[in-house]
Write a protein that binds this DNA or RNA. Sequence first.
DNA 1: TGGAATAGTGAATCTCATC
DNA 2: GGATGAGATTCACTATTCC
Lengths: 401, 401
Amino acid sequence: MEKIIKGNCLEELKNIDSEIVDLIYLDPPFFTQKKHSLTTRDNRINYQFYDIWHSLNDYLFMMKKCLIECKRILKKTGNIFLHCDKSASHHLRVLLDQIFLPENFRSEIIWSYKRWSNSKKGLLNSHQTIYFYSKTYDFKFNTIYTDYSPTTNVDQIWQLREKNDYGKSVYKKDKNGNIILAQEKKGVPLSDVWEIPFLNPKAKERVGYPTQKPVLLLQQIINISTDEGDLVLDAFCGSGTTCVAAKSLHRNFIGIDISEDAIALTQKRLNEMIITNSKLLEKGKTSYIEKSEDELFLLKSINAIPVQRNNGIDGFLKRQFNEKPIPVRIQKKDETLENAIASINNSEQAKKSDLKIVIQTNNYHQLFPLEDEKIIVIKSSELLIKEELQKVNMMVYNKSN
Amino acid sequence: MEKIIKGNCLEELKNIDSEIVDLIYLDPPFFTQKKHSLTTRDNRINYQFYDIWHSLNDYLFMMKKCLIECKRILKKTGNIFLHCDKSASHHLRVLLDQIFLPENFRSEIIWSYKRWSNSKKGLLNSHQTIYFYSKTYDFKFNTIYTDYSPTTNVDQIWQLREKNDYGKSVYKKDKNGNIILAQEKKGVPLSDVWEIPFLNPKAKERVGYPTQKPVLLLQQIINISTDEGDLVLDAFCGSGTTCVAAKSLHRNFIGIDISEDAIALTQKRLNEMIITNSKLLEKGKTSYIEKSEDELFLLKSINAIPVQRNNGIDGFLKRQFNEKPIPVRIQKKDETLENAIASINNSEQAKKSDLKIVIQTNNYHQLFPLEDEKIIVIKSSELLIKEELQKVNMMVYNKSN
DNA sequence: TGGAATAGTGAATCTCATC
DNA sequence: GGATGAGATTCACTATTCC
């Protein structure tokens, strides 16, 4: 079943039979008290909706009525996910406790992401909350396993453990004192903090609808709480992300939205089914990091900001010279000092600076006298220490002769 | 001021003058309805406390009274951080809204960590929430800057941009078509999701107290919301992490706890922060909780192992000389080089070494020629750069005359 | 006075030139 | 031509300026 309904969510929910839905995902207005508006990239359609309410009670009253209907249509094994942000999350969870009861609270999922924004006085917001409740204790759940953390001790994965007399966890041993191997391990169960990249402004998946969520987020929710063929419902479907995710995972779905534009957009997306894989998730954050730990410490020790993705520059100082940035280049292990200097000079960005710094890290290659006023060469502290130690060793050697 | 008070938090708070505290951190029982108990590694002390309540209302009534007192003692520029977990966070935030008002809500901080799995049905719980409210709009806040994301390229942070006629953002150019460089950049402001490792069960820092929080977490809170000399209060101080963090950052503090054991433990931890030189080596890799970040980076950049602050030594090189350790001393901000050298020479531990290293970090005091063969003085990279920049500035000045 | 325009942001993508 | 990498681009941001 694929159903997209234009209409008021409260009224439309009333038309749905009881106990037939496996998963409800709700992404209602967050009570931001703002008008949200965004235009498609071709400037042809301006999507907007008003998240402005007379009072908090108005908002909560609407949400309460909606949640009551949701509970009714949910199967006994069904789950509900309510997406909110800091604006009203606490009030919404109080509602959820009222309607679904505290014992059916399953998780507070944190969707965390990095975002572009100007600095403000205070901390940069970079997460939203998704409350996960089930209708009963007997809820459907598929455990997803993720990779072990790199710091995990392999011994702990392979060996069975038990609690000793003091309640401490120790490796279990048989009568002969041999360790006992554990059963098959699948990885670490998925945690309740989900680092999923925010839908990037440049992503093809973006359709120009404000508050659009990444398909990946919805796929994860659908994966843990439903099986193929199950019925998914989104009562505020907006740009239709839930429907797209459900379709891609072969689930049945019902999408409801009050806006004509939203319904049209959802239909269009279902026909095109454009889902961009996050390159960042695919390749992993670490694949973008080109600097070694040593280089990072060195940069930090001179109060420089590290930059990746640039051949000539490793970072730049926090202070400026002539109101221009001061780029820094660290001599690489097998690089001559000349090459290091050439490298920073070739960098398109560094060319615009009046002063550049090269940090020398080894002495394998002698440097001919430097003419360029715009380049400062500094020996790294480690190199200086190495040189001094050599001097002292020489003295010790000479004396003992 | 350093004050550790044994007593009921409500009563003790009442004895504190109004509007004198800069930062309150509260880590109350979370309403888990459980008894928490943990034993020290040597099995000698069993710490425990009861987080069992007659009803949610009982719990909230206690917290409400506590928060009202907190508001009273907080300065007009003061901040409060309330640490909670999923058990009652929503109710606590409703309380905070009531007492501190919604407009003084600053952030919902997510402390996320990796944890051992006890595979249950559902998502692995791996975060806690810290609510950040201020007393007024005019609150104290120090922005901390973090590194740019590895996916960020230099070009855009380096170049000034403007909106063109179509409202698109493009690089700004001068009359000659050259790009214009941007202002000074400090990095990315700290976000509200903090990934700080949960106390590793084997960590030295761990003292055997249940619900113990990492010092790093508290240091971050103290850093963003107070300056040196400010007054920090923790009304449920437990194992005393807040006090340790406050002391390490040179803040005054008051810690309150009802448990005799907790008070004793806090005192013990505070006392151990002053560690005798003789204990230094046997401890080996001691925790470096009191080192400033700058010193840490400097030590790391020369491949040295940081040691806890003592009068003479900041760290040891990983390599040895004459089969003896090489201690390192970093010249402090307001310290003459002579004093730095005297300091390391006076250190009991350093006396056993054949070679010592002093890293000079400023030029305020001239150094007379050094006779001592056993001391190597190295200028820090930052100082070297500073000197070079001064030279260049002089040249620019002379030329223009 | 207070909403609207605007100017400054940086994450992560897309694009396009280069190998 | 596929892979690579540098550069440009866009926005559920935020603070300031502008009427």
